[in-house]
């Protein structure tokens, strides 16, 4: 399959380096508390408009593995995964006109007066973009919903509104962007699903399966030594197949709540995705 040549065992790229930090506990109300403490000790941060940290594969890692790094900075997403829910049974009212939220869509903006509402972290990305909470979603439908929200929430459109509402718009709009970015990408969507189930993924964890390790090195060498785009395209097609395979196996594992298997699928998807990126760079 890959070019068989293993005599020069070059170290894997720095992408594969083991993370040195011990895995910290997931977010708890305790860390939430400390972050507040720090916020109060630096009042400067309170006044400024904040945007939540993105949830893509690179920064999500930051977010979950080393939460303390965020402590100096306001981070709206930090309470996202704390299961702090604002009792969904309670009826929401518009802060501006007091209209009652319609139950049909997430209450991010008021239907009556169009005011942007404060961020409600209990609404997950799937709810925001109006899709079922599962792995196999129709990605094509996300863009339209995403743009619909941005037309109601984007900070550019509330330029003339109060400072308070501009703050809400900044938060809500950033959250919708994160939702869109997270759910469009299969890998980050998979990780987000596990996260919602309270499962932490260490995508940087070194793979122990020697067979996979050998395969990855072979891919790397094959890519490095590829003579022309035809060869690269061929390798890419094979990687694409692998990605699809592990994507399916994630879906199966997740459905049957086999989280260990799901994590292992995610790690493999991560490797193939990176290999693919290297090919794209060379193409």
């Amino acid at each position: 399959m890959w070019k068989k040549k293993l005599n020069s065992l070059t170290p894997l790229s720095s992408n594969l380096r083991r993370s040195k930090a011990p895995i910290p506990p997931p977010y708890t109300t305790a860390t939430e508390f400390t972050s507040k403490q720090i916020l109060s000790s630096s009042p400067k941060f309170k006044t400024q408009e904040n945007y939540s940290f993105s949830f893509n594969s690179s920064s999500s890692k930051r977010l979950f593995k080393t939460p303390r790094l965020h402590l100096g900075l306001p981070n709206l997403n930090s309470n996202l995964f704390c299961s702090v829910s604002s009792s969904p049974a309670a009826i929401s009212h518009c802060w501006n006109c007091n209209a009652v939220a319609s139950g049909t869509a997430p209450f991010l903006a008021c239907q009556s007066c169009r005011s942007v509402q404060p961020l409600d972290p209990s609404i997950d990305y799937f709810q925001i973009l109006g899709v079922e909470k599962k792995y196999d979603i129709k990605v094509e439908t996300l863009e339209g919903k995403y743009k619909d929200w941005q037309k109601k929430l984007h900070p550019d459109l509330v330029h003339t509104k109060s400072k308070k509402e501009r703050g809400y718009a900044a938060e809500q709009s950033a959250r919708v962007s994160d939702a869109y970015r997270t759910l469009t990408d299969p890998l980050s969507r998979a990780m987000y699903l596990l996260k919602l189930e309270g499962v932490e993924v260490d995508e940087e964890e070194r793979i122990s399966d020697p067979e996979l390790l050998v395969e990855i090195m072979e891919i790397r060498e094959a890519v490095e030594e590829a003579a022309d785009t035809q060869v690269l395209n061929h390798i890419q097609a094979q990687i694409q197949k692998q990605l699809e395979h592990w994507s399916e196996s994630f879906a199966d594992a997740f459905c049957s709540r086999k989280y260990e298997e799901a994590i292992s699928s995610i790690q493999r998807m991560t490797y193939y995705k990176r290999a693919n990126e290297e090919i794209v760079k060379k193409l």
Binding site: N50, Y51, S52, F53, S54, S59, R62, T66, L69, L73, P155, A170, S173, A174, S177, R181
Partner: peptide, 10 residues
């Protein structure tokens, strides 16, 4: 990167 944006690195 879509704006507004916030990113960090260690």
């Amino acid at each position: 990167t879509t704006m507004p944006a916030r990113r960090e690195l260690i």
